[in-house]
Each structure stands twice: as C-alpha cells, then as structure tokens.
Write a protein that binds this DNA or RNA. Structure first.
Length: 450
RNA sequence: GCGGGUGUAGCUCAGUCGGUUAGAGCGCCAGAUUGUGGCUCUGGAGGUCGUGGGUUCGAUUCCCAUCACUCGCCCCA
C-alpha cells in the first residue's frame, strides 16, 4: 500500500474550506465581470521559449517547472508550467490581436506553479485572479484608475476588515533616485531594496541603501523622507511637489508626477476614499516589466500577511511576441495565500461542508420513493437537497446533518404520509414545523431566504 | 541554491536518565436515547514510535545516514 501524502507546498482544502474558497472566487469573478472583463482560460503549460522569453536569468528559470513525457527522460523539455497569468495572456493577445477588440479587458482565474521552497503562506501551486486591460498602441490612464476601484469592490464584499490599496508610479521613484545620484544601472536594485520597506522597516532599508550605494548622508535622508511618504492622495501629491519640485529633477520624474496625479484624481472620481486607497511612494514592485503605475494591497490589521494583491502598468509586455505595441495595466490576487491566511486569522467563515441546504431524512426506508420524490421536487425548484440514505437511525441522520451544516431537515413517516404533510426542522434552532406537501417548496424557499 | 527546527494514534502533543503490556486531550465508532443532532455519561476500535543502518543482552529512547514535513534567507515575472 502506498502511504497517502501530499507534496510539500501544495495546498488542498477540506470541503468546508473549499466551499469558503469558492465563495471568494465567485466574488472576484462577479466584480471582474461588473467591470466588463471577459473570461480567458489558457493551458497550464506553454512552450518553454514563450514562457521564458522575458529574461530574468537563472533566478526565474529556477522557479519554473518543466513538462515532459515520462518516456522522454526529463533532462530537456520543450514545455513548462506557467508561473503567472500575465505572460500567457501577453502571448494570447499577441497571437490573436487580429481577432480581438481593443481595449481588450480580460480576467483569468487559474492555478500557476512556482518551484520555490515552501514557507509560510507561499505555495508551489496557487490560484491567481488576474484582471488586465490591454490597449492597441495606446491605453488611457483612466484604466489605471479602474483597477483599484475593482479591487476595492472585491475586498469590501469579502468583508475581510480594513485594507489599503497603495499606489505609486515607478517613473517617480526612478526619476527621484536618478536625480539623487544613484547610478542608472543600480536603480533597479535600489528599488528592490525600497520595496521591502514594509517587511523589514525603514531602518533596515536605510542601512542597506547606505551599504550598497554609499550616498551622502543628506541624500540618504532625502531618499528616506521620500520613500516614507504615504497617505491620502491630495496630501502626498502636494508634499511631493514641495519636497522635490518636478522641474528640479528630470523628465522621468515629471512624467511620474503627472501620471500619478491623473490616476489618483480618476480613482477619487470612481468613489474611492483614503480609507482604502492611498499613495505610497515606497511601492516599487520587484518586477522589471512594470513601467508606470504600480499597486500593492495590504490588510491594515494584519500586516504580517503581506501583500494580498499587486500589479501595475506595463508599456509593452506583448513586445516579446509581436511588433505591435500593446500597452496594458492589470492586477493579480494570489487567492490561495489570501484565503488560507484569512482562515487562519479567523477572518473568513468556514462553516458548511455541504452545498445543499436541505437534508431529506429517511424515517421509513420502506417509503424511500417518497423521500427521493421530494428531493427531486426541491431540486427542480432550484433548491439543493440530499437524501440521507446511509444512516440507519434517524439520530445518526441528524448528526450527519449537523456536522455537514445543512440548514433544514425534512422529516416524515407514516403519520405525515397519511396527512400529506412534511415536518421541516431548522437545524440551528431545533424548531420544527408541519407543512402541507403542496406548500412545501414555497415554504422552504421562504425559510432559506429569511 | 543556503541555514535552523521537527518526525510517537485520524489531529495536537506528552513520555521513555536504554528495560518486558507506549499514554493524554480532541476526533472516530457503539450504547444509554428502537420518530430527532449539538450537551452529558459508559464502553470500544485505532500505533512498523518516519525509514535504513550502527552501538547494546535489549533501541521508540543514544549515534550516523536518509527521507519527509516545517520555519527562515535568496528569489518571488
């Protein structure tokens, strides 16, 4: 016998957890579709050259799983499992550009695989929920503002406590660092250091920047003040102009200020307030492909969970696959990690282990046809129902109902059959009412609604 | 790729300074209660002590290796 065990870093859920997880998926899907995004589904694996087109070197390679037929041995592989949904989408858009209507606004909720060492909250297989808007040649900055609005709707409906969508613009930080004397070939590294500020704290960042780039004390102070800017959009923009007037730096910086201002205004017009949306100049994102707007989202009461959703604008991601310029902006929710952490923190209710609200108990096995018949009636009316066929005793049937979290139980035996009635029991309270069979569906529908 | 921690019942863990029948809580099953769950009580099932080797009269315990899980670092498109 082979001992059943799962592979490290692969998370699977028990039924009640999976039901809670699926509820979250439905919320995400609903808001994506409310924003007009169309569904896209791409295969789990792609050609290796397509997937690894975007350089990144060994650090990227190392995390990608190769796919090969067992008979082929395994050293060389032409296929690989996708590690995100953005790259497959870029390939798809480039490939089908002639058949798509732009701007192409798509969402995609599928698993991705990353060959990392497992650690708390990091999995080797997880579900990502992506939404992106891709334009033909150009893409309005208004789309950059829609992204936070969509995310805002999702997390509010998930009811997971206070959260903060933090936005910045890479041109801003890039221009600022460059204007502060950081050599251009070191800017990406400096941004990676700064991006960790939330995790390791400002003191550590200061230390790392000092060690790596040895700027003057005055410069370092300026950088630290700058990356610590965080708050309501108007306030941050005002401070940012005071701290470093746009014309005193460079074009990149000036463009960043302008873009950030435009996007922040549109976000406000879409109804977001500083309660859930702020500007945060330390947001940089490690990704090299982001070129403008960047987002990061955190739970205010649970900073330890880290970023639960992030993304940004990329001017030319599909440029890897086509000469047609296709700029995009998008965001991704790492749903597996988010939901797992929410469950651990008790922020997500995990209760029912059934998808049907009604259990039809079997008091008299000789009248099984009646029980099956009523289950069929309920199902035809769109009400989920299960018949308790496996437990001999009624007590066991109720215990089963209790454990799986059914809302209602139907009970009937000889007396009820003779009278043409059913007893409907509300499991949470133990309350039980007698209902005529002709009114049963209607009554149950009302009870479930209330 | 690098470093730390842990492997004993389904789960969380205790224990054995090396000794004959390895424990608890929770969970599970049954009964008390043959047309009613959650609470209570009683009884019961369930263990190659991760695996392989070494030391020893004797190893779940000590040593080595290995595997697995786990936490962190690197990285995280």
């Amino acid at each position: 016998m082979i001992r059943p065990r799962s592979i490290s870093g692969l998370r699977e859920f028990l039924p009640a957890e999976q039901i809670a997880f699926n509820r979250c998926v439905e919320i995400v899907r609903k808001h994506f579709e409310l924003a007009g995004a169309v569904p896209l589904s791409t295969p789990a694996f792609e050609l290796r050259e397509v997937l690894l087109a975007k350089e990144g070197g060994d650090s990227v390679d190392r995390q990608v799983y190769g796919v090969h037929r067992l008979a082929d041995g395994g050293e060389d592989t032409d296929y690989a499992l996708r590690f995100d949904l953005t790259v497959p989408m870029a390939r798809f858009v480039a490939q089908h550009a002639g058949e798509l209507t732009f701007p192409f606004r798509r969402y995609q909720i599928q698993p991705v695989w990353r060959g990392e060492r497992a650690q708390a909250g990091r999995y080797r297989e997880f579900i990502q929920c992506d939404i992106d808007v891709v334009g033909d040649q150009t893409l309005s900055l208004i789309n950059d503002a829609e992204i936070p609005a969509i995310i805002d709707g999702i997390f509010k409906e998930m009811n997971i406590g206070p959260f903060q969508i933090r936005m910045s613009n890479r041109k801003l930080l890039e221009g600022f660092l460059s204007g502060s004397g950081i050599p251009s070939d070191a800017i990406a590294d400096a941004m990676r250091v700064i991006d960790k500020i939330d995790k390791v704290g400002p003191d550590e960042i200061r230390k790392e920047l000092a060690e790596t780039f040895s700027p003057g004390a005055e410069q370092l102070d300026r950088i630290m003040v700058y990356v610590s800017l965080r708050g309501p959009a108007e306030e941050v923009i005002e401070k940012l102009l005071t701290l470093a007037p746009a014309d005193s730096l460079n074009e990149t910086y000036a463009a960043g200020v302008e873009e950030l201002t435009t996007v922040a205004r549109a976000v406000a017009s879409l109804g977001l307030t500083s309660e859930t949306f702020v500007l945060d100049l330390s947001v940089a994102r490690g990704l090299s492909y982001y070129t403008g707007t960047v987002y990061e989202t955190t739970l205010v009461d649970h900073p330890g969970i880290g970023s639960i959703c992030s993304g940004g604008r990329y001017e030319n991601l599909a440029g890897l696959y086509t000469s047609r310029k296709l700029p995009g902006v998008g965001i991704s929710i790492g749903l597996t990690r988010l939901v797992t952490r929410l469950m651990e923190a008790g922020l997500l209710a995990v209760e029912q282990a059934t998808t049907a609200p009604v259990l039809v108990t079997v008091l008299d096995p000789g009248s099984l046809d009646r029980y099956l018949n009523v289950a069929g009636l309920l199902r035809k009316a769109g009400i989920g129902a299960e018949v308790a066929t496996e437990q001999r005793k009624i007590g066991q049937q109720f215990k089963y109902a209790d454990r799986k979290g059914f809302i209602l139980a139907l009970v009937a035996g000889g007396d009820e059959f003779a009278a043409g009635t059913w007893q409907v029991k509300t499991l949470a309270t133990g309350e039980q009412v007698v209902i005529e069979e002709v009114k049963l569906v209607e009554t149950i529908r009302r009870m479930l609604a209330g």
